[in-house]
Amino acid sequence: MSQLSHLEELEAEAIYIMREVAAECEKPVMLYSIGKDSSVMLHLALKAFYPEKPPFPFLHVDTTWKFREMIEFRDKMAKKYGLEMLVYTNEEGAKQGINPFDHGSAYTDIMKTQALKQALDKYQFTAAFGGGRRDEEKSRAKERIFSFRNSSHGWDPKNQRPEMWKLFNTKLFKGEEVRVFPLSNWTEKDIWQYIRQENIEIPSLYYAKERPVVYRDGNIIMVDDDRMRLEPGETPVMKKVRFRTLGCYPLTGGVESEADTLDAIIEETLSAVSSERTSRVIDNEAAGSMERRKREGYF
């Protein structure tokens, strides 16, 4: 074993994976969802290929309901590093007015899962990097670093290719693709410590700040723009909150927090009493819901 620290070992592993994909896969793309994991992925990609720019484009699937600040942050990063940033929206869905208030899980399917499939088909990507970690959820804990999808983008959990040592088999048939998760072995805590160590820029939504919010079904939802539908009796109040994950603002629960520095966030994370995906409303439906959605092509 090496004398590398825990974080150095994880960093080297992720870089190795990124370079293997760049060398062996025909048309890679890095999915960029603007959150902290994406920020770490971008940072690693910049380091992995330096002084070259990352030799693949970035793809953001925009549901049109992201926090406004996320979009500003995305554009700022793309400009700062001269990235090829592809933005894809399911225009059909947007035209039909599919929204998180009226359409529930159909919204996630149409504007996220379907949109991602459409984007991958449109550009014919053969490998897509994602920031997924095995510590996030039980079915993720079983996923390989190289996770193969059939031509309809589905995952077959009972038939995963063996992954030995770091000898990745990247062979694909036409129409197949592989999702690659370089952060598989990172934990939420590792992510935060790495952000601190490397001084990685992340959207300020992660830091506690006074924000207009409503309390709904046990979640704290931010009123990010005037499309937010208030239910009878709801009035936005200013609360000091922060977000542990970033997504579509009407579906992303915040937490009341005083943590407005990285150290405070890490402190809070270490003593966390609920794992981060609780704040995503869709995961709670039933145990196994994540696996079901992944088989259908969700990232």
Partner: peptide, 22 residues
């Protein structure tokens, strides 16, 4: 640890599950 639906139903472990702790 047994994360996959088929595993929970059958009460056996099919694939490797990775866990992280400190």
């Amino acid at each position: 640890l047994d994360g996959l639906m088929a595993e929970r139903e059958q009460g056996i472990t099919i694939d490797v599950a990775y866990r992280y702790f400190t």
